[in-house]
């Protein structure tokens, strides 16, 4: 049974912030935020122990609205701040929320190194295939051929898969969800937050105002329900041919492995060297 929104609203949204929030009507960011708050609620994490860090962009504005220790950082750098917070106070639960351009263009280096380093941080990456806040320029996940304000003749570069990038870079838990599959997203986020090590949840979201409009993908409802048709669960995708998977993407848990967590390892080193004669 899902927790009632009223509870979420009263418990986790900042009462001294102006609502409704800044996002456009129908923006998936709000759905992801709802999922994130329900996941945190389900896990029963004390609000004082949760730090949510974000970068710059539409999605990153969500930190303003939620009643945790929130950190709205510079463009692409959310993970670097989060690393500092986590290492300085390991008992804190650190979650970062970033957009696709934020996490994988300007913050791409930090992203792959956070995955490699395997610090106990959860990264939620809301992928709407564009830079929404700055006006719809092409991002690393804008599909080949798409139009954007900086690719009006059609995009000539190729996009990459954030989730697969995370797997290759060494993240111990990688999942992909969509804003259509919100109930599943709750679960994926819960799993990611519980996971020891660097966990990544890529959320396919809609920007009907920038990306959708320029590429004739329809309104928010059309785009969101469109994810239902394009999303294929991991198990089912395994049995499908590349041809069948064309234009589709997998959803669910893509990777779940166990690896020593560097922040925990460092704790051990710290404890051992503290005992050494100074």
């Amino acid at each position: 049974m899902v927790v009632e929104t009223e509870v979420i609203r009263h418990e986790y949204l900042r009462h001294d912030k102006k609502f409704p929030h800044v996002w456009c009507p129908g923006c998936g960011n709000g759905i992801v935020l709802g999922s994130l708050l329900r996941a945190i609620h389900e896990l029963g994490l004390p609000k004082d122990d949760v730090v949510v860090a974000s970068g710059i962009g539409c999605s990153s504005r969500l930190t303003t609205y939620i009643d945790f220790n929130t950190l709205h950082t510079t463009h692409g750098r959310a993970l670097t701040f989060a690393t500092g917070v986590k290492l300085a106070k390991p008992r804190l639960k650190v979650i970062t929320v970033m957009g696709d351009g934020d996490a994988t263009a300007i913050g791409g280096n930090h992203f792959i190194h956070a995955a490699r380093r395997n610090i106990n941080i959860t990264a939620v990456i809301i992928n709407n295939s564009t830079y929404g806040m700055t006006g719809g320029q092409y991002s690393p996940t804008t599909p080949y051929g798409s139009k954007s304000t900086t690719s009006v003749y059609g995009h000539v570069e190729h996009d990459f898969s954030i989730a697969e990038l995370a797997v290759t870079a060494g993240a111990v838990f990688v999942a992909r969800g969509t804003v259509y599959h919100a109930a599943q997203l709750d679960k994926l986020l819960e799993q990611a937050i519980t996971k020891r090590g660097f966990s990544v949840v890529e959320v396919i979201s809609n920007c009907h105002v920038q990306h959708g409009r320029r590429n004739k993908l329809g309104d928010a409802v059309t785009m969101i329900t469109g994810f239902r048709d394009r999303a294929v669960p991991v198990a089912k995708a395994a049995k499908m041919s590349a041809e069948e998977m064309r234009g589709k993407f997998t959803i669910g848990v893509l990777c779940d492995v166990d690896k020593p967590v560097s922040s925990e390892e460092y704790d051990r080193i710290r404890q051992e060297s503290c005992q050494l004669p100074q």
Binding site: T80, T83, A88, K89, Y266
Partner: peptide, 30 residues
């Protein structure tokens, strides 16, 4: 580590600066 502190070599100076701000916000002089 001997004094209970933390050292980390980040991927670049941008990240280093970000990390020390994060640590300072968590209450640790950095």
């Amino acid at each position: 580590p001997k004094v209970g502190g933390t050292f980390i070599q980040m991927e670049d100076e941008i990240a280093s600066m970000g990390a020390i701000i994060g640590a300072s916000l968590a209450g640790v002089k950095s």
